[in-house]
Design a binder for these strands. Sequence first.
RNA 1: CGGGGCGUAGCUCAGCCUGGUUAGAGUGCCUGCUUUGGGAGCAGGAAGUCGGAGGUUCGAAUCCUCUCGCCCCGACCA
Length: 495
Amino acid sequence: MAAGKSGITPRSEDYSSWYNDVIKQAGLSDHSPVRGCMVIKPYGYAIWERVQSVLDGMIKATGHQNAYFPLFIPMSFLTREAEHVEGFAKECAVVTHHRLKAGGEGEAAVVVDPAAELEEPLIVRPTSETIMYSVFADWIESWRDLPLLINQWANVVRWEMRTRPFLRTAEFLWQEGHTAHETLEEAEAEVRKMLDVYATLAEDYMAMPVIKGRKTEAERFAGALHTYCIEALMQDGKALQAGTSHNLGQNFAKAFNVSFTGREGKVEYAWQTSWGVSTRLIGALIMTHSDDNGLVLPPKLAPIEVVVIPIYKSDEDRDLVLGASAELARACEGKIRLHIDDRDQFRPGHKFFEWEKKGVPIRLELGPRDLKENKVVLARRDTGEKSPVSRDGLLEHLVGLLGEIQANLFQRALEFREQSTRRASNYDEFKQILKEHRGLVQAHFSLDPEWEERIKNETKATVRCLPIDAELPAGAQCIFSGAEAKSDALFAIAY
RNA sequence: CGGGGCGUAGCUCAGCCUGGUUAGAGUGCCUGCUUUGGGAGCAGGAAGUCGGAGGUUCGAAUCCUCUCGCCCCGACCA
């Protein structure tokens, strides 16, 4: 590994190693004894808790309530919606027994007790549509029970062949919203509303620009009418699906008998939606902002926004500096998440590197020299700039600067995405762009599934989405087939 | 499932080809002293089923067989 003393491989050398190194050096996660599953360490989990706190507020502000449904789903439930089972069957963990017993001779210490086989196997939820809607069917009787707006924070399991920390793990944490409505229009409005919530989370909090769009038939959620998503572009030119919002139509309602008596006294099936974002967002965060020195966090999601490094030689200086640090901490309470690194066993330089790798947006160095001049030395993580700042009005300065850093990160990411977005006017050009730059490629597309498949096989690029706000010129032709273009499509090689 | 790589101290690895003292280094950890504005220095100390099982041998981290696991690249992936 060419990672050097920082322990971080430069991005230019190997992006994949860089990603793993950043996670390791920032202390976000660890490998676990279980294949494909990660341990989320306290610092990584603190970032997730920031995401949760922000998003949970937005979910509740849009009228949803949190609830919790079982981890286990009777296997037969999965099969009730034909497309759904097809989409998930290949990655389900299955529980078949409920008891172990002492092993016999030549066996392990404990073995599965064959007498304890379940009558019906349970699957560990890969997503909760089926278990939830079987219960929704009981909850919903009248049009007056609608809309039903439920969210749950949970873990799910998808037995993926190949995993990467945060981006794709066999078990991951997420929220899944599940709603039922009286009409298709209401369901559609819900789906779009939550897509907007996700876009706000991504852009205003993660400082990650996203494109809102619709998935093609091939890419949509198994069992949905159609799927909306937010797509983000990572630094290496690959796209990442950062959140999805599905209009399920009446597909699940029919399978689980989620019906109600309507205003005219007729029994109708509910129109449903589901939407989710996961711990994958942390992967997105890493690959949007971080650099060769480690993690870079947007202030709004940083567990620690400002870290204070006290510097001292004598005990007397130590008391003064720590006193001044504590005073600053009191002033910041409730306004800025500030941490004083008063560990005695490390020297300042060591701490600088450590917090840099952890992506803390602002570092303050506070020593006797500064106290004498009524200053602190302030270092920005996003630009690396380091300069003295007066201690008068410091709180206001910090608040302002955190806002500036937040805005700068978004702007930087937006510029990168714009530079990395190109329009192809024919297939050769399309292939050339992907080969030379990767990034996002816009193209007028007929939406022909055969072409979609062929493009994927030949270039590895998939339709990331059909952007909601894209305009299609009248009479536009598909750049691949020459047929009439049905939509402007955004292609990319994706994670 | 295919291709490649790797399992030796908490971590990173050397030692293996060519079997032979008491299995090593760096880092981390513990203790003490000195230090503290970009990864501190010195001294002392603790730390290991050499992934597992079997075999060859007087003797195995090293050779052979089997096995388990991990990582990377593919295939796969709401």
